[in-house]
């Protein structure tokens, strides 16, 4: 499943991501690396961004990118 399939309140572990180099690095910079546990906080309506909690901080990820971040429960 991907990050896009999670619902608010779900806790998942990131397996891998497929994205362009720039987006990929920004993901790593914010700590969204393989093996990281994240918790989905909110999903904006009308296919807006998804908010996830990584450690003590919140990160917004656009839907397009979220659909390419693979996670397991």
């Amino acid at each position: 499943m991907t990050l896009l399939d999670t619902r608010p309140g779900d806790e998942v572990t990131i397996d891998t991501a497929r994205a362009g180099r720039g987006a990929m690095r920004r993901l790593w910079d914010l700590g969204l690396l393989p093996g990281t546990k994240v918790k989905t906080v909110a999903a904006h309506p009308f296919r807006g961004p998804i908010l996830v909690r990584v450690g003590e901080c919140t990160v917004a990820v656009g839907r397009k990118l979220a659909s390419r971040i693979y996670v397991t429960k």
Binding site: A19, G20, L30, L32, P49, C57, V59, G62
Partner: peptide, 10 residues
């Protein structure tokens, strides 16, 4: 322009 959103929410 790259519009892919990844942003920290402080």
């Amino acid at each position: 322009a790259d519009s892919e959103l990844v942003m920290e929410i402080p």
